[in-house]
Design a protein around this nucleic acid. Structure first.
Lengths: 194, 194, 194, 194
DNA sequence: CATGAATGAGGGTTCATTCAT
DNA sequence: TATGAATGAACCCTCATTCAT
């Protein structure tokens, strides 16, 4: 593992835990075992380091969601929606720091990077939204989902995902699988067609 | 409004927006129209200022939830649960900065205050949890809520609340009332007894 | 003498000797007997400190030239021109550091301040130029200065001043009075009318 | 052109413009298209690089003055003095950066190199001084220059040169030829014998 | 000959905090 | 109650320099 990668890995962890402003470069480099100016051999600035990690996380997030969607090509609409949810959270659980980094950056971006970040979030979220919307529409057409306005159903699903994410921050992984299943069941009962 | 109160009001806003580490005292005092050391006439330290605000926010949050619960003494279980939800979000919407401060402090507390904060969150959340649990139990007993494990239903409700909160960060107030109603309908469909 | 003034005084000396880039704030504050951040209680930045001194020097320079001109209201044109020259150099010699600071800033301005400085130089130099031009014209009219193009005479005088200044940097004060007289005599011979 | 020469050429320009302290090696190497450590393949240190350029400039300056003197072997004393002046400025104008580098190093040497530089300046300036002194003496003997103390005449001539140099910094080349002629005429009128 | 990685020293600046007033 | 002056610690970043390759 190169120093560059070590810096990124450690920085990811520390930014996730302490936030951008709460994490001095010195804390990162100390853990890597290198002096602070070494960062500047690889990144133009602290902001650049952050953005570089951000791009990775965004990309990973995007691909993990995408692959979860693709792996859920077969099965009923219910199974596929659940696969998406589960896929997202499998990634979240296995890449806990990335997830926290991602959500923190999204919810409370460092002031100086706010614009740049918000812009980039759009695309990824859009993709996920589209896919879910399509699945929900399919469910309605198939009669397995109640015929409500599509946007309402979508809001519900996104609300579910967000809620689950927040709970991820508080509860540990072990209890999570059960929660996921349970909450999904409740939600599906709510949207299922008669 | 006393200087002390002005400082707290401005600090609330700025801490909510920029976080603890991202908000220098100077930014707060500048907006108040006072020099930085003035803070020390009222608060022992930056941490103290933060904690003082935190206590207020916690207390307001607690009371607003409590009063929402109390105002929902009459009516069906469904109505009362919805009132709780609505009460919480009415407060959230009207006190946007307090809400953000609260959630930010909860999700990403400043490292140096983490322990102190987490401890204090417990009680408030506990109270809310108890109340909801009681209502859900009542619903099951009355047969209006499906007879599932109580904790599962509770998890669902809390997930709903968290999800709604996150969406509050992204969407503006105007669209929110509709979302709230809609999502509640989905959720209630999900938990309602046959 | 206030700390602010001490900082300016020491900075003047050090900027004159070492230039802007060659003079760290720490060198200034060390000599003042204060820590480096103290500078920021009085000046917004190193640039601001430099500019503040610059304004003073410019102003002093301007007024010293002006007062030299005013004090040379009586007498022949030759005497008055010489008074201007002498007045300028009396100031230069008595305020050696200011002079060096001034000329250094003019000849080799710090890159980041170049534009701001050049702009400000204009006015002062203009004033001096106008005055000398008027005197030279008067001399021509009176027949004591040869009837050459005014601009040529002016160029000569300015060249004389610049040359004298440069020599000021190399030679010490004691020899300077004699040089001044001598060079003036040569120059006057050159421009005097037949 | 070898890399070594490119580095020197670019460094000359940048040192002239920004001074020693104001010019990081990185700025030089960037313009050359090479990484910073490449400098150390040819020069022991930044100081060495500066001194190496300095030697070249000093040598060029010396030879250009000398050749100007030699080319002015014939003609009247006036013509020969003017040739020296003109030769110096032809060089100055054609090698603007060298000139600025030279004068800057002379007037405001980097603190750490001050002693070394001042020492080396002596010889070159001495040579020029001697030559001019001889010419002036010849002029006096021939009766074309007024019989004043030789040192006074010399001071006048050197003052003229210095003044012209300073004006070179402010005015562009196009106007300069005329200025040179004009100022020389004034000066010659001043020193010419009756 | 030239680079990429890394460093030690230092530079300008910010910030929380203190203290006399 | 509030300020202006001052500080120590820390922060981001730059720079000259070294060294293995």
């Amino acid at each position: 593992m190169t120093t560059r990668d070590k810096i990124k890995a450690v920085a990811l962890t520390q930014f996730a835990k302490g936030g951008y402003e709460g994490t001095p470069l010195s804390a990162i480099t100390k853990e890597v075992g290198v002096t602070t100016p070494a960062v500047y051999a690889f990144f133009g600035s602290k902001e650049d380091l952050f953005l570089s990690i951000f791009e990775d996380v965004l990309s990973n997030h995007y691909h993990s969601v995408k692959s979860a969607i693709e792996q859920a090509q077969d099965g009923t609409v219910e199974e596929r929606l659940y696969q998406i949810l589960r896929g997202a959270f499998t990634y979240h659980v296995s890449q806990e720091e990335e997830t926290i980094f991602y959500k923190r950056a999204m919810m409370f971006p460092p002031a100086s990077l706010e614009d740049k970040l918000k812009e980039r979030f759009g695309a990824t979220e859009e993709m996920l939204t589209q896919e879910i919307r399509a699945l929900l529409a399919e469910g309605i057409a198939a009669g397995v989902i109640a015929d409500r306005p599509l946007d309402d159903l979508l809001d519900g699903f996104l609300c579910l995902m967000d809620g689950l994410f927040l709970q991820l921050l508080y509860y540990d992984e072990s209890k999570f699988e059960h929660k996921l299943q349970n909450i999904w069941k409740l939600f599906w009962s709510g949207i299922a067609g008669s």
